[in-house]
Design a protein around this nucleic acid. Sequence first.
DNA 1: CAGTAACCGAGACGGTACGTCGAGTCTTACA
DNA 2: TGTAAGACTCGACGTACCGTCTCGGTTACTG
Lengths: 205, 205, 205, 205
Amino acid sequence: MHEDGPVTTARTARPGRARSEAARLAILDATRDELAERGYDKLSLDRIAAAAGVGKATIYRWYPAKAALVAEGMLTGHLLPHLEVADTGDVRRDVLDWLRASFSTFASPAAGGLIRASIAATAEDAAVAEHYEERVTSVTRAALLARLESGRRARQIRDGAPLEALVESLIGTVLLHVVTRRDPGDAALGATVELLFDGVAARPA
Amino acid sequence: MHEDGPVTTARTARPGRARSEAARLAILDATRDELAERGYDKLSLDRIAAAAGVGKATIYRWYPAKAALVAEGMLTGHLLPHLEVADTGDVRRDVLDWLRASFSTFASPAAGGLIRASIAATAEDAAVAEHYEERVTSVTRAALLARLESGRRARQIRDGAPLEALVESLIGTVLLHVVTRRDPGDAALGATVELLFDGVAARPA
Amino acid sequence: MHEDGPVTTARTARPGRARSEAARLAILDATRDELAERGYDKLSLDRIAAAAGVGKATIYRWYPAKAALVAEGMLTGHLLPHLEVADTGDVRRDVLDWLRASFSTFASPAAGGLIRASIAATAEDAAVAEHYEERVTSVTRAALLARLESGRRARQIRDGAPLEALVESLIGTVLLHVVTRRDPGDAALGATVELLFDGVAARPA
Amino acid sequence: MHEDGPVTTARTARPGRARSEAARLAILDATRDELAERGYDKLSLDRIAAAAGVGKATIYRWYPAKAALVAEGMLTGHLLPHLEVADTGDVRRDVLDWLRASFSTFASPAAGGLIRASIAATAEDAAVAEHYEERVTSVTRAALLARLESGRRARQIRDGAPLEALVESLIGTVLLHVVTRRDPGDAALGATVELLFDGVAARPA
DNA sequence: CAGTAACCGAGACGGTACGTCGAGTCTTACA
DNA sequence: TGTAAGACTCGACGTACCGTCTCGGTTACTG
């Protein structure tokens, strides 16, 4: 009656020197700095390696290509900050605050450069796009959707409202302004919230 | 590449050649093909020059850098198709049709690759972003806005409605799906139109 | 692209910028310095390119590989000095002087390093060996042979003497000492000349 | 004899696992194969380690550097075959046979590649050159010299003949042909022997 | 006979150099 | 004199090795 044999060693104990998590994190940090400073297509793996104090081969040992490195950085939160959606009880106000926070975050050169680099990487590479969707956008999407559903339960949002479409419009609006580098005034953000909650259709009297 | 007609008059003119517009158009065509096939950051001016039958110096005579070439290509319509906004009298339907046409256009690999390359170029380079906004987005923006104002005059849209915000949401929604390569079903497009016209707010009975 | 141009452009007048002879010479000079300092297998094309003020691609435009670069340097005399064989009327003395000059030349670190690097390149690569034989060894061989034949005409060397074998022995002796870095004394050089002229066989009384 | 405790470790046996002679021999065999196949400067310790079924650190535990490995391989006879000098009573014939055997051995691709790799290593590295001289060349030198002195005792070689110079010429001639990859005919070997025994000087009648 | 110290295969590490390719500039021959 | 062709410098790419440093694990001497 032997218990579990060497089965547990099957996965964790490879031969050879263990891979250095410290090196991996140094690479991601250096990548974030380079991306913020120079953008995606000016990214140089030579510079990243030098800045991280790492051999170039180590980068390729972890990530097969430049795009994968950027993708990994995004999904581990090393590159992009996470924005919470508050719940004050007033769903319109919480959505507006999220919009304001998003725009003020991405208005800074560093965060703006990072997000634009991520968008460029996403636009260039389908695999990166998938990572981005799964690990970044979907988190934001879910957070917004949860807040909206909470608002519906609070009877601030009507039953049957197209909440998914609302989320897409919110994120899309932010994305559009980030890409075109336009800064909407606070009034425009208010107008967006008005639009999404009240619509534009003429009301039958 | 074609021959200019009145070649025989060359004696009276200055020595040298006067054929330039054909080369310029060949460059733009080759750029469009390369962008659609390989994307922005894999764009090679050597390949473009070879494909256009043109010397590299000729490209630099017109465009100071790679980003400027892409920007110029976009604003002359060589890269991106222009989508009309119809006016059937029913503004909801016309907006929905524009959404459908946009998605079906960008779902094709060629047009999708082009628009994603443009987005990457835009995200990389502020000057390209400005060009893009001035010559491409603003055209679409104006066309949509004109249709919406026409709808307001027809009493299908209420006075004081945030039409600019609506336009941003529409374009942003399209942009988001293009970048993430997700294909919304037709039902989702209908939900987006419903959202933008009717809002989500609970109505006072 | 049409082909009704003058046929006379066939070989000498290619289109495009002419290849820079100055760059080629700078490459060879830098190669010589690197070889003398570090030897053949520590030779770095990056360093050569930097020292010559030349792009690495330019080196590869001229020479397909490291070995070919070294071979070309040798055959153009950029790497190895040429040693003359004097003709004072006394063939033994002239041969001895050539031996002395050869050893004193190759005893210096710079010339010794160069010749050893050339030997390493020759030993590594058959194509280099062929170049070396055709352009370097054969010149020395011919010069020595000419002097020996002149000595035979002066009745200092017997008819039917194996002059080619003598040349091989002379060059081989020099090569052996260069490779093993041993410095024969002057007496040993004299003994070599005595050997080659008088032989070792016992004489019938 | 009481104060210093661990002095007794001066015995041959150290604590810990003994070094594996089998691993050392596998390394030398793999080195020989790699050298014959690819030459000295393409030698890869990674490949040697893999071929020998040995960790790279084991190689460095035995040999401090690539050059030392090659040197050690040469002096243990793992890399180069040893050529005997026969003694049939006829010294001219024995020398000629040694020359023939040397050339026929080094004419084979494997032995030729090995000897050329050794020459390259020797030319590159002074320490290797010293090893080579001490353990390889000097053995051949001594064997040839012994045979020549035996010939002198048999009155086939005159007293006072420069035997060391003869040995240098013989080895140098072989070396020269190995490096330049030229194959002398049998007649040329005969001419070399004639040269070394009879000289080239005109004889006073 | 249990400890333990040096060994072992394996392979990741920081580096250096490779040979290729692309950007943007400059030069030559031709039209 | 403008254009194609293409060589130029510069610099990044992704790969291969070097020589070193861990890993987990294996002998074989020692206490």
